[in-house]
């Protein structure tokens, strides 16, 4: 029942490498999501009054 798409994740990961720097695509995605959420939280207008 769990992990319908897990077969996609159970493969050797892809890494981006620049000299001594490297990061897995998965970690990069997580960090990008965090940055996007942070930016969105500041840029998107908060509803004026909630009941």
């Amino acid at each position: 029942m769990t992990g319908w798409l897990a077969s996609f994740l159970n493969h050797p990961a892809t890494y981006l490498k620049y000299g001594w720097f490297q990061i897995s695509i998965s970690n990069l995605i997580v960090i990008l999501i965090m940055l996007v959420l942070f930016a969105a939280a500041i840029l998107i207008k908060f509803p004026k009054e909630r009941e």
């Binding site: 942070f38 969105a40 939280a41 500041i42 998107i44 908060f46």
Partner: peptide, 8 residues
């Protein structure tokens, strides 16, 4: 207190 940053 009117920003989405407060929900985190």
């Amino acid at each position: 207190v009117a920003s989405w940053i407060y929900v985190f």
